[in-house]
Design a protein around this nucleic acid. Structure first.
Lengths: 206, 206
DNA sequence: GACTTCCTTGGACAACTGTCAAGAAAAGCG
DNA sequence: CGCTTTTCTTGACAGTTGTCCAAGGAAGTC
C-alpha cells in the first residue's frame, strides 16, 4: 500500500515539479526579454500556454516564481565552460578557447545574462533574493576557478589571486562587454576575447 | 529691454533648474533606497516636500526624471578620485590610497552605487536609458584611466591594458565587493582594497 | 459507471501606477 | 493695491499589478 501511494505521490510530485520547470522556463524567456522591473505575472502567463491563474497554483507568490527561475538558470550556467577545462591540453589552448567561449556567450546568450545581472542587482535591494543570488554567484566563481586553476596547472606556474578576485576581474570584463554589445558598439565581443586572453596570464605569479 | 527680460528669464530658468535639481536629489535618495523597479513617482514625491503632481510640472515623464537623476549622479562621481591622483607622490602611495578609497566608497556610498548598477542594468533592457548610461560609464572609465596612467607614470613602467580593460577589471572587483558588503559578508570591503591593491601593478608591463 | 482528487480557467478584488487637468496659492509686476 | 504669471495641490482618470476564488474540466481510482 505504502509502495503504491509512494509511487503515486512521487509521480504527482514529479508532474508538479515538471510543470513548475515548464512555467519557469517560460518565465525566463519573458524575463530575459523585458527585465525584472517590467515583467508581470500576466505577461509571463501570456507568453506561456497557460492562464495567469495557474501561476498561483504552482508558485506561492511572485518571489517564489522568480526564485525558481533563478535556480533553474543556475543549472544551465554551471557547466558552461567545463568542457573547455576537460579537453584542454596546453595552457595556450585553454587560454584561447576560454577567451573565445566568453565572447561567444556574450554574443549568443546576451539576453539571459542581462537577466542574471538584473536579478543579481535586485539582490542589492531586496533581501529575499540574496540567498539564492549569492549561491549562484559562488557557483559561477567556482566555475571560473576551475578554469583558472587548470590554466595555472598547464602553465606550470602558481596562481597569484584568490578565487573571488579572479571571478570579479573576469566578470567585470564580461559585464562591460555585454553593455557595449547590447548597445551596438562594434567589436565589443572581440574586445572581450582579447581582454580575457590578455588577463588570464596576469592572474599567475611571475 | 531685452537685457531685463533676459535677466528675468534667466533667473526663472535658474529657479526652474534649481528646483529640478532639488527634486532629482530627492528622487535619488528614494531610488537608491528602493531601486528602480520599486520606485514610483508618488513615493518620490512623498519623500520630498512636494506633492506628486509637481513632478510633472518639472519633468515631462518618468523617463525624463530618472534621466535627470542619473545625470546629476554623474557629476558627483566624476571627480571622486581626482584628489588622490593630484596629491600622489609615489606609485606605492597612489596604489595604497586608491585601494583604500575604493573600499571606503563601497562602504559609505553603497546605496548610491547599487542604484548606479541598477540603472546601468536597465540600459541593457530599455533603449531610452542607453545614451546617458554609456556616457556616464565612459566618464567613469576615464576617471579610472587617470588613476591608472598616473600610477604607471609614477612607477616608470608602461601600461599593458586598454582603458576599457582597466575599467572593466576594477569595476568587476567593486561590483562583487558591493554585493558581498550589502549581503553582510564580513571583510568584503577590506578584501576589495586588497584585491585592488594587488591588481593595479598587474595592469603594467613587466 | 460514480466519485474523488487534481488541474486549469477566467473573473473579481483592492491597491497601485503614470498621467493629466482644474483650480488654489504664491510670486512677480504695473 | 489689482492683475498676470508662475508654481503647486488635489483629485480624478484609465490602465496595470499581485492575489485570490468559485466554477468547471480532466484525470485517476474504485
Amino acid at each position: 500500500m505504502t509502495e503504491v501511494t509512494d509511487r503515486i505521490s512521487r509521480r504527482q510530485v514529479d508532474k508538479f515539479a515538471e510543470r513548475r520547470a515548464q512555467l519557469a522556463t517560460s518565465a525566463l524567456r519573458t524575463l530575459s526579454e523585458l527585465g525584472y522591473a517590467r515583467t508581470s505575472l500576466r505577461e509571463i502567463a501570456q507568453n506561456s500556454e497557460f492562464s495567469h491563474g495557474v501561476l498561483h497554483y504552482y508558485f506561492r507568490d511572485k518571489v517564489e516564481l522568480i526564485t525558481a527561475c533563478v535556480k533553474q538558470y543556475k543549472a544551465e550556467c554551471v557547466t558552461r565552460y567545463d568542457q573547455i577545462v576537460v579537453t584542454a591540453k596546453t595552457a595556450e589552448g585553454l587560454r584561447k578557447d576560454f577567451a573565445e567561449a566568453l565572447a561567444t556567450t556574450c554574443r549568443e546568450d546576451a539576453s539571459m545574462h542581462r537577466l542574471w545581472y538584473d536579478l543579481r542587482n535586485q539582490a542589492l535591494f531586496e533581501e529575499s533574493f540574496r540567498k539564492d543570488v549569492l549561491e549562484i554567484d559562488q557557483t559561477l566563481e567556482q566555475m571560473i576557478w576551475r578554469v583558472v586553476t587548470t590554466y595555472a596547472d598547464l602553465a606550470g606556474r602558481p596562481l597569484a589571486v584568490t578565487p573571488g578576485t579572479a571571478y570579479g576581474l573576469l566578470d567585470g570584463l564580461f559585464t562591460q562587454a555585454l553593455l557595449r554589445h547590447l548597445s551596438g558598439v562594434p567589436g565589443a565581443t572581440e574586445d572581450l576575447a582579447a581582454a580575457a586572453h590578455q588577463t588570464l596570464p596576469k592572474l599567475l605569479d611571475a
